[in-house]
């Protein structure tokens, strides 16, 4: 077991605003429950996504697991260490990438920052050179290693951040929104890269992302957190299986079509000037497509599974109803 979390709870103290004088002389604090008694474990080599809406507690969980913040209660074990002790042996075995924070020095080249990391992680010259070559080739950034960081695009910088965080061959890689703000090609490259290192080096990955493509392409297991509690923890295929009887059809028309004509075939989930996306039952797919082709000015039909975003959103709504 690489990660073992039992009954993790994290409560933040938050200052209450009560006017200038009171705030200065008698500040009062309230409590915010960020993580509520959650338990899960992760095996070596697993790639797991931690999902949830903003404020669900996923980043807090990740920060507790990396030893950045102290848990209010619970037993937390990562690679046989209590993360907050921040033992060197533990920190040498983990890597952390945060999509909106940078560890690279703005005015220097990525290579200069990597050189400092080489010394911090005590990596030999030959291993360092080999690793830089391997990773930069995988991410196609070998020609940018000696370019000032400020001159790199966001995507290029994120690729360099990734190199920086795994240069020491970590056993566990924590990724917090690693593709945030990137273009589609950079996103794809980073996803492929993460999959490749996870499969080849057996790195355990724990990822948080709002981009469901990251989740689908990089991870095998999904833990869904909402309002500090886990509401789903299973494989990606099981998550998708629950929604396998639903399909989405994107209908592209040759001319504008009134929505009531489309509504007859299924629930409209998206609408654009010349296209509609409708939700249908999977078993009715052939019949509905035949009817639409016959009755509407159709140009093209795209059949897709229910997007992961919809599944997760549906799950949040269900859990909220149960809580209420």
């Amino acid at each position: 077991m690489v990660v073992n979390v039992k009954n993790l709870t994290k409560v933040y103290k938050v200052k209450k605003t009560a006017g200038f004088l009171k705030d200065t002389f008698y500040p009062t604090f309230g409590e915010v429950l960020a993580v509520n008694n959650i338990s899960f474990s992760i095996e070596k080599g697993e790639s797991v996504a931690l999902l949830g809406p903003n404020g669900a507690g996923k980043t807090t969980t990740m920060k507790v697991l990396t030893g950045l913040i102290y848990p209010t209660s619970g037993n937390i074990n990562v690679l046989d260490f209590f993360p907050f002790d921040r033992k060197r042996e533990f920190l040498k075995k983990i890597g952390l990438v945060m999509g909106n924070k940078t560890s690279l020095e703005w005015d220097l080249t990525p290579m200069q920052s990597f050189q400092l990391n080489k010394r911090i992680y005590n990596i030999s010259e030959s291993k360092f050179n080999l690793k830089i070559k391997e990773l930069s080739e995988l991410l196609s950034v070998e020609k940018l290693l000696n370019t000032q960081v400020r001159k790199l695009s966001l995507g290029e910088r994120m690729k360099m951040e990734l190199i920086s965080s795994i240069i020491h061959n970590p056993d566990v890689l924590f990724l917090d929104e690693p593709t945030i703000g990137l273009d589609i090609i950079s996103k794809q490259k980073i996803r492929d890269f993460l999959r490749e290192i996870q499969r080849n080096s057996e790195v355990t990955i724990l990822l948080t992302s709002h981009d469901m493509d990251d989740v689908e392409k990089v991870t095998d297991r999904v833990i869904v957190v909402n309002e500090g509690s886990i509401i789903f923890d299973d494989s990606m295929s099981k998550l998708l299986y629950k929604y396998k009887n639903k399909k989405y059809l994107t209908l592209i028309f040759t001319e504008k079509v009134k929505s009531f004509k489309v509504k007859r075939f299924g629930k409209i989930v998206d609408k654009k000037p010349l296209s509609y996306t409708i939700e249908i039952k999977a078993e009715e797919q052939p019949k509905i497509i035949a009817e639409i082709t016959e009755k509407l000015p159709i140009d093209d039909i795209d059949i897709i599974h229910v997007p992961l975003e919809e599944i997760i959103a549906d799950m949040f709504n269900s859990s909220r109803k149960i809580l209420n």
């Binding site: 920060k63 990396t66 950045l68 042996e89 983990i94 924070k101």
Partner: peptide
């Protein structure tokens, strides 16, 4: 304030 201390604290040296 900006949370960049996170990236310092995960380095395997005395913080």
């Amino acid at each position: 304030n900006n949370g960049n201390l996170d990236l310092v604290l995960v380095k395997p040296i005395s913080s």
